[in-house]
Design a protein around this nucleic acid. Structure first.
Lengths: 108, 108
DNA sequence: ATAAGTACTAACCTTTTTGTAAGTATAAAA
DNA sequence: TTTTATACTTACAAAAAGGTTAGTACTTAT
């Protein structure tokens, strides 16, 4: 482990800005298998509000982790998918899961 | 990757609760090398307020990631260190750093 | 007597994040 | 003509997170 200097910009903070918060990782995780529509995402993450879902999707699109495809149909059909760099957060999610498991083993 | 069902309790959420937020991972990272006193931590994370530092340390102690040792001296001397399960978040931090780097390569 | 060092605590305030509820647009189906 | 479906938007409110400032306690050094 090389040293990370904790400054205004540091790698920990960069990643925290990209995927920090209550919802972003959950959304990314859901998009891993295949692109999903808004309504499908809502179904998979039952306790997110529509507003937060849309807001966080926008956020992820702005930072290029997610892509939006509008099919231009009526009623509207829009699909969200992971970009290449979006897919690369998967190892992080895998680490989080594995940490949660170690934690529960140790504590419980 | 096996499926994680996104429910009230899921591994992503568990880990988010343990180390989510603006400061916890930075504190854990600083304690990796060796135990530090409050004043030393403050120096290493220049933009954290004393209140947040103490508050987050308490939080980490409650969840058993950090241990507190009071030397019972005057003026007070207290050292904070990572517990065994606290040390195990290091791979997660390593992933975050590596993700930040990939991200910057790709985007910039 | 006063100041200095250390690890806090408490009161108060601001900002950010999250949530709720209602409304918009469009075309097809009933 | 009303309902249905979908992907939003807007206004407002509540809750959580974060920040500022001042103060406490204790002992040694000045």
């Amino acid at each position: 482990m090389e040293t990370i200097k904790v400054e205004a910009r540091c790698p920990i903070r960069t990643t925290l800005e990209l995927v920090g918060g209550k919802w972003k990782l959950l959304i990314i995780y859901q998009l891993f298998e295949k692109p999903l529509r808004l309504s499908e995402l809502k179904r998979q993450i039952p306790d997110i509000s529509e507003k937060m879902l849309i807001q966080e999707l926008k956020n992820l699109i702005d930072s290029k982790l997610v892509e939006r495809k509008n099919f231009g149909e009526v009623p509207p059909r829009v699909e969200y998918s992971l970009s290449e760099i979006g897919r690369k957060v998967m190892p992080l999610i895998a680490e989080m899961r594995s940490y949660a498991q170690e934690y529960e083993n140790q504590i419980m």
